[in-house]
Design a protein around this nucleic acid. Structure first.
Lengths: 239, 239
DNA sequence: CGCCGTGTTGACCAGTTTCAAGATTGGTGG
DNA sequence: CCACCAATCTTGAAACTGGTCAACACGGCG
């Protein structure tokens, strides 16, 4: 259902840590070791499409790694407004390093398989293995950086730029090449709530992209990447 | 020039870590110890208003703590659009835990005094004292949470709600009480770039607030907090 | 086969931006 | 000390982007 982003033909779960910037102190051997240690304490969980994994405010008793499917992390306002803060793809860790309560709600966008790790054991592992802690820290930093881009997008970019950016992200993270169809599928509402737009605006921009032959839209609303460079040009703004 | 947020009448720099959520494992004694260790490796620096402290992409050779004044962290687009990601107040740490390069530009909003710590020594201190590392990690987590709120603001809130939120933040962080005037001062452009709005919109909203007697605006554009509850109601949206 | 949920499109509307004209303050130099 | 200039803030009017409301299309499912 989902393709794994740029990864060696690995079985579930992906056997590597997410690619992160050069971290000289962490050798591949060490990485594998860490992964093994983690594997010891994880439990596989299945979640149906649309189900809530945890709510904002719940005590953060587990950390997770997504194996397959798509998850959204979002924030809700009392009047129903919603902002999606992050989409999670297979291989992604989430809810690590939460202080005490979850600061976001996690929901399954599709049927999902994930591995849950008791927070307590993660903490212990962190104490025992500095390299693991180091790695989560790096993950946090990366997250922060992505957040900066998201802020810029919501604060300063047009609807066209936003939609183009999201599509690029989706094609990127699912390893979709030109002329391939996006494996991951999400509703227009999800796109809109990630982009700070309405469903209708997302639709209109997608229609425009279709007319411009940058993406294809099938009868079942599946998206095909037709012209990556064209899309990149539309997302523009990148720096 | 700047008042310190809810802090004991302390000399510069504030002698406490920023208040963070309950962290049972860190005792006050330990905290003081950490601060002392940090103080060993810091150097005081003075930066003039408007000057750049570091640019996005520069190698991250130092971490900082703001002593007095106001700093903005921002991202620039090639066409000049700008998004302010965070304002820093006295006592705030920044640029800790950067991977290799700075992901944001830091500029002095006012004349500023800060303490710079060589990244290398911070790393060493982190290795030697897990409690320090723990603390920076918590700071990162807190930052991430605040970022979620900022995202929601830019993605889903009206101009009125945004301006009200920023004012609340400023009054809060500078410890301004009702009928007091905001110590920290920033241009309308800075407000606009934090809020994802234009100068003119910020002006209009502020004028409205003035008419509603929620804030006062002096002839030198200084802001006075008149009705905190009124402002809170306007920021609404909170959850 | 026909309903239901989601996506698409159009017409109209609202909030925000853009453009442009003052107003006010602070600084500079006569 | 005052006139003038530059920078910033404020306000108004018009333009525009994106939002709202509403109709319709279409595929999935009972």
């Amino acid at each position: 259902m989902f393709t794994h982003a740029n990864q060696a033909p690995a079985v579930f779960p992906p056997l590597s840590w997410p690619t992160i910037g050069a971290t000289p102190s962490i050798t591949p051997a060490r990485a594998d070791e860490d992964l093994k240690a983690l594997a010891q304490i994880g439990t596989k969980v299945r979640i149906g499409s649309g189900k809530t994994i945890f709510n904002e405010g719940d005590p953060a008793e587990f950390a997770y790694r997504l194996v397959s499917g798509l998850v959204r992390l979002c924030k809700h306002l009392s009047d129903g407004r919603r902002q999606i803060v992050q989409f999670l793809f297979p291989g992604d860790f989430f809810s690590f390093m939460e202080l005490t309560d979850h600061s976001l709600t996690a929901e399954a966008v599709s049927d999902v398989v994930l591995i849950s790790y008791p927070a307590r054991q993660i903490a212990n592992l962190g104490k025992a293995k500095p390299s693991v802690r180091e790695r989560f820290l790096t993950l946090l930093s990366e997250r922060l950086r992505h957040m900066h881009d998201h802020l810029m997008m919501l604060g300063r970019q047009s609807a066209t730029e936003r939609v183009a950016s999201l599509l690029l992200l989706l094609f990127e993270r699912t390893g979709t090449d030109e002329d391939e169809t996006l494996g991951a599928t999400m509703s227009r509402q999800d796109m809109a709530d990630y982009l700070g737009l309405t469903i209708e605006t997302v639709c209109r921009v997608l229609s425009k992209f279709k007319r411009q032959r940058v993406v294809g839209i099938s009868s079942t609303h599946q998206l095909t990447l037709l012209d990556r460079d064209g899309l990149t040009a539309l997302a523009e703004a990148n720096k």
